[in-house]
Computed example of a mutant assay.
Amino acid sequence: MTTSPLIPDTARIGRTALVVTDLEAMIEFYRDVVGLAVQTRQETTAILGAGETPLLVLEQDEDAPPRRREQAGLFHNAFKVPSRTALGAALDRIREHWQLDGASDHYVSEALYLTDPEDNGIEIYTDRPAEEWPRADDGTVQIGTVGLDLAEVAAQSDGRTDAPPGTTVGHIHLETSSLEAAREFYVDTLGLTVQTEARSAVFLAAGTYHHHLGVNTWNGRSQPAGGRGLAWFEFVVPDESTLTTVREALADTTVAVDDAAAGIELTDPDGITIRLRVA
């Protein structure tokens, strides 16, 4: 077990990237429905975000096959908005331009669920105040699922058509082919903390957040990730010494550490790429 976590308590999720086939349609969806602004655009790549913060990278590959039913990969990207007002506005946009798949109160947060045009899951949520999160005696967070009052959420909306500054990628939720292998990698190797365990799922965090990463086996995935969908996601860490520590700690393991833009990257047991970048 990691005595000092390789991913420190101060880490957070940065950007997430998707391999897409129809770049124009995906830009339109994430702009009009999720509310992200196009920050940079090239022929086959677009970066979208909120305020000045980049959150989503779309990488076009017109020949990328659909992700197969048995392949691991993304369950959902979770965009955290800073208020119930922003959540209500997101609900307005979904109802006007798209279709809502579901909505839940998780005790720690309130969440809306939908699916993008290329079958990637999305959560848009806002946190309840941290002091209200139910915790077990050992300090871990207790996440649950009950119905969300959509009429009450909609009543909070200010009608904003874009995601406000302060919107982030709060967490990533993955589908794995082996919960045991995922735990060994993310908990035993990288040092994330188990916050909640549920049926065939585990929710992990850097520090005391309710979760930065969810991992589940609900849909019986049995093969490594591939095809369209998640290209990579990143943890933002506080300093270069963290990257050095990770390189040194993993030098004699089977986990390869490679250079990436502004940082390093690792690959989890399902072939999903994780980048570490300095804030």
Rank of each mutant, 00 (worst) to 15 (best):
R68M: 09
L58W: 10
P54K: 02
G220I: 05
H76A: 05
H97C: 02
V20D: 08
D92F: 02
G121E: 11
L266F: 06
A151G: 12
R15E: 11
L114P: 04
R67W: 04
S109P: 10
R135W: 08
E24P: 07
P129I: 04
V187P: 03
R15H: 04
H212R: 02
G88V: 06
V81E: 10
L276C: 12
T140S: 15
Y107D: 10
E62F: 08
N77R: 09
V33R: 07
Y107S: 12
D239M: 02
F185G: 02
R247F: 04
R41S: 12
G227K: 06
V278I: 12
A260L: 08
A198Q: 15
E96L: 13
I172Y: 02
Q142C: 02
A206T: 13
L230P: 07
Y209W: 10
D138T: 01
G102C: 11
T168C: 05
T126F: 07
P5C: 01
L213P: 14
G144L: 05
V34R: 06
L87D: 06
D101M: 03
A205E: 05
T168S: 09
V108R: 09
A86V: 01
H171Q: 14
R199F: 00
Q223S: 12
W218F: 00
L55C: 08
A261H: 09
L87H: 09
L114E: 03
T168G: 04
T253A: 04
L266Y: 05
Q60C: 12
Q195Y: 09
D259E: 15
I7H: 05
D162H: 09
V194W: 00
P5K: 04
V81W: 11
T16G: 15
V169M: 04
A262P: 02
L204Q: 10
E110H: 08
A181M: 04
R183H: 11
E59S: 14
T145G: 10
H173K: 07
M26Q: 12
A260W: 03
T16M: 14
G147N: 02
W218I: 03
E265D: 14
V278W: 12
T253G: 03
L250Y: 05
E240N: 12
Q99H: 15
R277E: 15
P54E: 05
A261K: 08
R275F: 03
I143M: 11
Y125F: 15
L48F: 08
A262R: 13
M1S: 13
M26E: 08
G271D: 11
H171M: 15
G73L: 11
P8L: 06
A37P: 10
E131S: 09
